[in-house]
Design a protein around this nucleic acid. Structure first.
Lengths: 224, 224
DNA sequence: TGTACATCAGTGAACGCGCGTTCACTGATGTAC
DNA sequence: TGTACATCAGTGAACGCGCGTTCACTGATGTAC
């Protein structure tokens, strides 16, 4: 999945695996701690996460993380922020693959949302699991979260501008789109919906489910 | 919200408030513990929940809960189960209010789902927040959860049978409906969407959002 | 190139704490006769 | 109605534990001259 850029830099020539010459100084501890935290969540569940165990997994004394994160929650906030950035990247890529077709772009961004959640379920859990008391206390996180949602809203606006979505309030349409892919991602990532080997893959489910909503958008309100 | 049946029984005539004659035996400790747990979650967040604090709030020694729940997780499982039962009741009521109109029934059940989540956000968190390691280890919980989803699927099937939904796979339609209301409930309950005083109330958002999906269902696939 | 010094990133002992669970117990309640 | 006894629902001390955070420290790194 993701590579620890600086971790590779440190050693320079030493190909891989065998511990690079890192001695007292780690080189990329901040990043290593974030990855260790994700590994612990994968193993023990998000609510069992402890700073000391994270440090252990990173091979470092349990107080070292205070050089990089002022508290346990700020480590979680950093991971959540990373998640929103990755999500934004995924949505952006989907949008750019369909610049000529705003409706396809909207659907693709929804599918990207679901795929992100399935691929990074632990990020999703930290982003939305109520582990961070208040986003307001972590401005960078709040900004990243707002940015991701803004991409989605902009996709809705473009489809409206192009005349592909009729009638409905943009806020409601955006919320409907968000709720749908968010719910689907949560259900799949949370194991409530099987999408394992042999079962319909997440991408297929996301495609079909978003298609249904899209049809509703296309045709506009029928007048009650 | 909910009344503790047996707690009232215990005292008999003593109207209310002033501690009924409960001495050594509590009378309805199981129920009282569940409510105390919900209160602690409301105060401190779900991940801070501790059996000892729950017992403190219930006014009982911290080991008393072992007479009613074999472990901390089983207390959580009981609350989650209660949540699914309440959710099922809410959905059933919505369905029965529209027996003559399967499509209205389907939408009403979705709205009921969102309203349940908004009204009982802490139940929702316990039901879906990954606090319970495996539903399989709590059969009654699993059954309650499956029952709620089954009600929703049955509503979809009835709309299909009545010819109101064309073409689409029932599994996909059910999943789309579930994902949408589940996502909306999560977003509102998690504070990602404001629906507080002055803002559009949850019921309105749920109605509009489900209407969009409904329109997609009504018109069926347009043939790609 | 060498030296002095400031800064940075990690260490390890120690703090105080609350936790989940076990155990042997005791007071209260229900039931058989 | 009264008594003996089993069962049930709480108690409180004790267990062993890992946690987040602080502190004074030390080794490593970078920089000015």
């Amino acid at each position: 999945m993701k590579t620890t850029k600086a971790a590779r830099d440190a050693g320079g020539s030493s190909a891989h695996a065998r511990r690079p010459k890192r001695g007292y100084h780690h080189g990329d501890l901040r990043n290593a701690l974030m990855q260790a935290a994700l590994r612990q969540i994968a193993t023990d569940g998000a609510r069992a996460l402890s700073l000391r165990e994270v440090a252990r997994r990173a091979g470092v004394s349990h107080t070292a993380s205070y050089r990089h994160f002022p508290s346990k929650e700020s480590l979680l906030a950093a991971i959540a922020e990373e998640g929103f950035v990755m999500l934004s990247d995924a949505i952006s890529a989907a949008l750019q693959a369909h610049v000529d077709d705003p409706l396809a772009a909207l659907q693709a961004s929804g599918i990207a949302y679901v795929e992100f959640g399935v691929q990074y379920p632990h990020h999703l859990q930290i982003m939305f699991g109520g582990l961070i008391s208040s986003q307001t206390e972590h401005p960078a996180l709040k900004q990243a979260a707002d940015g991701a949602y803004e991409l989605l809203r902009e996709a809705v606006r473009q489809a409206q501008r192009a005349g592909l979505i009729r009638g409905a309030d943009e806020r409601i349409v955006s919320l409907a789109a968000w709720a749908q892919v968010h719910g689907l991602a949560q259900l799949i990532a949370g194991g409530q919906v099987d999408s394992a080997d042999g079962r319909p893959p997440a991408r297929y489910l996301a495609t079909e489910v978003t298609r249904l909503l899209q049809q509703g958008l296309l045709n506009g309100p029928k007048q009650k």
